[in-house]
C-alpha cells in the first residue's frame, strides 16, 4: 500500500467540481490532476508563476517550468495570479510546511531564533497569500513531533492564528485551513476551538498512533472513520499522471 497514494486521494477529495484551485508543485499537483480526471473535471488550476488553466502534456516539476505553461488559457505575471486570491476568486489552495501548530499556523521561514536562525528556510512565497485569502486551504504535512509542534519558531502563514475571531481581527478574508492531510490520516479543526482534531485515518492506523506523531494534544474527535485503500482504477490514474513516481510513489 502507498501512503503517498492515500494522501493524493485525500487531497483530491478536497477539490470540488468547478473550484478554482491554487496549486504548487509536488503532491498537490498530482492530486489536482487526479481530481480533474475523476470527480472534478471543471476544476481550474492557477499557479503563482502566473500560469492559469494550463493543459500540460507531462507532469511539471516546477510552477515556473515551460512545460507547465503548455495549453494555458492565460499567462500573466505573479501579481495577476495573486490578485485572484484577494478578489475571492480562488476556492481552495494547498500548502506544505516545515512546522505546523494546533491552529494550522505554518512556519516555512526559520528554525531557531528568527534573527540568528539555526536553519534558514526559503520563506513564505505565495503561501501566506494563499492561506490568508483563498476561501479555504488544505495543508499537506507528514506527521512527526518536530513538524507538528505546540509553538512555532516563526509564524509565516496564518492558520486560525490564536483561535475564533483572530483571522477577522487580522483582516484575513479567507476561512483558513479546513484539512491537514498527513501520512497517517486526515485532520480537521473543532469549530469551537479551531484546534486540530482527527477526522479520518488511513488503513491500519489507530488514533493513538496518530497522536503519537503529533507534538500537541489533538482536540477530541467527533467521529473518526477509516479511509478505504485506493482501487485499481485510481492507482492506474496516479501512475498515468506521475509515471516516474516523482511525487506519489505507488509503494511505500
Amino acid at each position: 500500500m502507498s501512503r503517498d497514494a492515500l494522501m493524493a486521494m485525500a487531497a483530491a477529495r478536497e477539490i470540488r467540481d468547478g473550484d478554482v484551485a491554487f496549486i504548487g508543485t509536488g503532491l498537490p499537483m498530482v492530486a489536482a490532476y487526479l481530481a480533474k480526471a475523476t470527480h472534478a473535471p471543471e476544476v481550474t488550476l492557477v499557479f503563482e508563476s502566473g500560469i492559469i488553466d494550463p493543459a500540460p502534456l507531462e507532469l511539471a516539476t516546477g510552477v515556473g517550468e515551460y512545460r507547465l505553461a503548455f495549453g494555458a488559457t492565460s499567462i500573466r505575471g505573479t501579481r495577476a495570479a495573486l490578485t485572484l486570491l484577494q478578489q475571492g476568486k480562488v476556492d481552495i489552495g494547498f500548502l506544505g510546511t516545515a512546522e505546523i501548530d494546533a491552529y494550522g499556523n505554518l512556519n516555512t521561514t526559520a528554525i531557531g531564533e528568527y534573527h540568528h536562525p539555526d536553519v534558514r528556510l526559503p520563506g513564505s512565497g505565495g503561501a501566506n497569500d494563499i492561506a490568508s485569502m483563498a476561501r479555504r486551504s488544505v495543508v499537506i504535512a507528514r506527521t512527526g513531533r518536530r513538524r507538528f509542534v505546540e509553538t512555532l519558531h516563526y509564524l509565516t502563514t496564518p492558520g486560525h492564528l490564536t483561535g475564533p475571531g483572530a483571522r477577522k481581527d487580522a483582516g484575513l478574508p479567507g476561512d483558513g485551513p479546513v484539512r491537514v492531510i498527513t501520512d497517517m490520516g486526515v485532520l480537521g479543526f473543532s469549530p469551537e476551538t479551531q484546534r486540530m482534531r482527527a477526522e479520518r485515518l488511513f488503513p491500519g492506523v489507530t488514533l493513538e498512533a496518530l497522536q503519537e506523531g503529533i507534538g500537541f494534544a489533538l482536540d477530541p474527535p467527533e467521529e473518526v472513520t477509516t479511509i478505504a485503500p485506493p482501487d485499481a482504477g485510481t492507482l492506474a490514474l496516479l501512475r498515468r499522471i506521475d509515471p516516474a513516481g516523482t511525487y506519489v510513489a505507488l509503494e511505500d
Binding site: N105, N128, L161, R167
Partner: peptide, 15 residues
Amino acid sequence: PMLSQGGTDIALLGG
C-alpha cells in the same frame, strides 16, 4: 492596502 500577511510574524516581527 492589501489583505494578506496580517496576524503573522511577517507583520509582527521585523527583520
